[in-house]
Design a protein around this nucleic acid. Sequence first.
DNA 1: TATTGTTATACTCTATAACTATA
DNA 2: TATAGTTATAGAGTATAACAATA
Lengths: 153, 153
Amino acid sequence: MDKSRRPDLAAMLFPLGRALIAIEEPILTTNGLSMWAYAVLLGLGDEPVRTQAALASAIGADKSRLIPVLDDLQDRGLITRRPDPADRRVRLVRITPEGRRLRDRTQASIQRAEERLLEVLSPGDRQAFVRTLHALHESVRAADPAASPPSGD
Amino acid sequence: MDKSRRPDLAAMLFPLGRALIAIEEPILTTNGLSMWAYAVLLGLGDEPVRTQAALASAIGADKSRLIPVLDDLQDRGLITRRPDPADRRVRLVRITPEGRRLRDRTQASIQRAEERLLEVLSPGDRQAFVRTLHALHESVRAADPAASPPSGD
DNA sequence: TATTGTTATACTCTATAACTATA
DNA sequence: TATAGTTATAGAGTATAACAATA
């Protein structure tokens, strides 16, 4: 710190990401969700429909990798997947009320854990950090052509 | 943002990490370094010696995965690896002047690229973000028993 | 016997490309 | 023919465990 050199951003971000995964994985397991399944439920938001390819790129996944995840979520009644009457090649994916409940319950649990990780920061620093991280995230997403559409959120 | 729900920390961190990798990978390639090779050069710091196992855990890698990386760096004269006279099971790994030059040159290039990513932030926000990220990184590292020793830095 | 470094192996994750069904 | 979804396959990355040298 006293040297003119600061650690690389990535050198700080990645250990933090690893720590987050370590904290969140047991919570996901408890709720019967894989990381990608959780990402799908988050990615569906409350919007009624979507195509699988758009959903995949929105959460940074390959469309082929999503198939077994969607199969499982559908089997468990957490999402529905029906052909679009207008274009039967397309599947309309939507989250069910039960899926929404599980997602929200899981997210609440995860965010509580995340807050504990942030507890070392002052309330002001914590708020500023989350706000800035959000701004950076938006900026990065806007720069990525393959990212989710800039609709809601 | 207007809803009471904020995005998960991880949901913001990971796309940011992906963007960082996308930015930094071409720079590393230009300098003839893999991500792990770069991590090794950073992990060696300027301290004269270290054991491979400690080096591995310090950068969050498995010791077995480091072997080919060290072999290559050694072949290229960027590090030296000699048996410790005091305990010949141990290899003393140290960065060479040439390795230090390459590392510093690469890091300068990477940090310039990182700064461009941070340019969407005000100078104050940028500084606060880096400072807070550093604090979180230290906190996480202190909590991880397998992490690097709390010696310097 | 315990430990460091090394090698070999198996496993997971991810991306690519062929296949089907609709248009 | 082109596109959405699906399936199958190959590749990279990672972790585990066996091995050799030294203590």
